[in-house]
Every structure is written in C-alpha cells, then in structure tokens.
Design a binder for these strands. Structure first.
Lengths: 193, 193
DNA sequence: TCAGGGGTAGACCGACTTGTCTACATTTAG
DNA sequence: CTAAATGTAGACAAGTCGGTCTACCCCTGA
C-alpha cells in the first residue's frame, strides 16, 4: 500500500476513535510504521493530515450511504433505508465505516469551533453533501416529483433526525429504535408531504 | 464572588467556547485572576474541574428549559416552545446560556470517547435528565394522559429532533427554521399520537 | 498580638506536543 | 552502474501541558 494512504488510514482511525487533540503525531507514526520525515514529506502539517482524513471519511461515508439508498423509490423507502442503515452502523455492523463513535465531522467540528478554519469548513461541506444526497434521492420519487418545497422540507427533516439519532447514540452509548418503526415513519413522512 | 464559583464560571465559558483539550489550566487561571494553588485547593485535577463545569451547565440549561416550557399544556405547545427556545439560543438571544456553540455535553462527549469515564457519564446523565423533563411535561397534558407508550415515543422524537437541530446549527453555523413551522409541527405531533 | 487559613506569584518538574534536521539505507530510473 | 528520490530512525528544538511546591502576603478571630 502507498505510504500516503497508509498514513491517512491510520490517522483517520485514531482521530475518529479517540478525538483529534487526543492523538499525537508520534502515535500515528508508530502505528503506521512510518518515519516522521515521510509524514512531513506528504503533509505540511498535522492540520493538513486532518483535512485528508476528513476528505477520505467524507468519500467513504457518502459512498456507503449512496449504496444504502440505491434501490429506494418512495420517500418511505428512503427514510426506512436511511434509519436502518444508521442503526446498523451504530450497532457496529458496518465494516466499511469501522467501529461506531458518532459522526466524525460533528466530533471534529466540536474540536475546531472557529467557523472559518479549513477543518470546520470541511465538516460543514460534508453535511451539505449528505443533505444533497437525500434531496436527490427524494426528488426522484414519484410522490415528490415537481414538489420542490416539500422535497427540501423532507430532506431537511430526515437530516435533522439523522444527526439527532447519531448524537444520541454517541452520548448515551445506546441505539434508539424509535425511527425504525415503519408505522411512525410512514406517519412522519405523510405529515411532511 | 466566591473563588471557587469564579473559577468554574471562567472555565465553563472557555471550555464551552473553545473545547476542553484546547484550553489549558494556565489560561483559565489568568482569565479568572486566580493563583494556581487556589485552583488546586478546590479541585484535585483538571478532570474534576471539568466535572464541576458540566454540573453547572446541566443545572443552568435544565433550569432555562424548564422555564421555557412552564406554561405549556398541550404536546403542540411543548414542542413549539421547545424549538422556539432552541432557535433563540442558536441565534444568541439567550443570555443565560451565553454565546451559542452547540451542546456542551455533546461537544465534551466527543472529546472523551471512553464510556466509563466520569466526564462521559455526566454527559449521558444530562441527556437523560432533559429527556425526563420533556417526558414529565408531555405526560401532564390532557392529550397524553395515561398513554405511557405514546408519551415516551413523542418525548424521544422531540429529543432526537432537538439534538439534530443543535448539531446542525453547530456544524453548519446557521439556524434551521424548519421546526418552527407550526403547521409541520402539528402534523408531526399528530402523527406520533 | 499573634496564629492560622486562604490567598498570590510564579519557579519548577517531567512528560508530552508539533515540527526540523542529520545520517544513513533502500529503491528506482536512466 | 550510478545518481536521485524516497525511505528509516531518532535526536533535537522550542514550546505547552497538568500538577507540585516554595515563599510571601493579608485578613480574621481568639
């Protein structure tokens, strides 16, 4: 494996599971089996390495989510697939995303409060791309064809519920089955269409 | 003002706005105008100071939320008051809670991933107490009298939406007006009762 | 008057931080 | 075969971290 991707993979795993400020460069080097000089040949600073990790995670997460929603043709199917997928992730049943420790982007944003910081901006960008993915999926359903306002509203609602579900699971260390109830879900969607 | 509360107030403000690992003891001392010895007379370690901050924040936040929901007698009123209050907080219109920077407990939990850590446990406890507050409010409404299951479900739903709203506002640095729409809110609640 | 509690300022400790640099080894390309 | 690029190991710099400790000050109550 390429040294650069080797470093990013190791760093991403450590940053995600233990927090960014809590993980030092030396630790990553040791675990990745790479010399310090090599790391600083590929990245000018720790911040740049963090950015590379965020980009990789963004790509992986979006790819995974895209696949989970692939065969959904109604708003209900999208919502049901979304929350089922999140639930599986929370329960550590998704190997692509690794052991669950909340949303990497929310966690990271919490450590970089300044909104103009490149790292904070990548976190924001990730959320926008996920919202866009949900919007695209919903706007291609028969039920929402041409209903731009309703589509935006539902995408926003699903997004908010997604974030809430992830954060609750992260803080309480337990998964919330509420949003996997098809009856409730159908009613939620109906109320928003 | 008592030295101890002076330290806690300064520390809470700094920890909340800039993250815990990002704020050093010396900084707090300087800002609070207090000697290091004094701090370590009151707290055996930084961790204990963090715990004191979490407890103060928990008390303040719950007090504030309790007041916001005081005159609500229907599930709709509870939900509407909740999201209006959160929106005001996000828009920096709530002086009791200070400048908005997301949920202190979610932010802090992100920096202390180990679930058995005292700090992580306080974060979890806060979420449980807020959920309890919502449940109590809802269970005293005419519409939900005796409907334990429905009450739990709605409290959970509101809680998830609350967390989602806060996290989204924190990461995207913008407030989401979706949940302040009374029409949508009524339908959401109707769907859950 | 004087003892003691609580305060201040800040030196100091050892461990850790990011990042630079030297000295050497290995791989790759012409 | 040789020269350049890329790797390694790790010492080192300069600074920060949490936490301890000394030395001194000031207020209060007996």
């Amino acid at each position: 494996m390429d040294k650069r991707t080797q470093i990013i993979n190791t760093a991403l795993s450590a940053f995600y599971l233990r927090g960014i400020h809590a993980v030092g460069i030396n630790e990553i080097l040791k675990e990745a089996g790479v010399a310090k000089k090599t790391l600083y040949n590929h990245f000018v600073s720790k911040d740049e390495l963090i950015c590379a990790c965020l980009e990789l995670r963004d790509q992986r997460f979006n790819q995974w989510l895209y696949e989970q929603l692939e065969n959904c043709n109604t708003p209900f199917e999208v919502a049901y697939a979304l929350f089922s997928a999140l639930s599986a992730w929370i329960d550590n049943k998704v190997s692509e995303l690794g052991p669950f420790n909340g949303c990497f982007f929310i966690n990271t944003a919490a450590e970089f409060p300044h909104s103009e910081h490149p790292i904070a901006m990548l976190c924001k960008a990730h959320k926008e791309s996920v919202l866009q993915l949900l919007f695209d999926k919903l706007s291609h359903t028969e039920q929402l064809k041409g209903q731009l306002e309703k589509t935006i509203q539902l995408a926003q609602l699903l997004m908010t519920l997604k974030e809430g579900m992830i954060c609750q699971a992260r803080v309480t260390h337990s998964s919330n089955t509420l949003l996997q109830d098809p009856v409730l879900l159908r009613q939620l969607i109906a109320s928003s269409i």
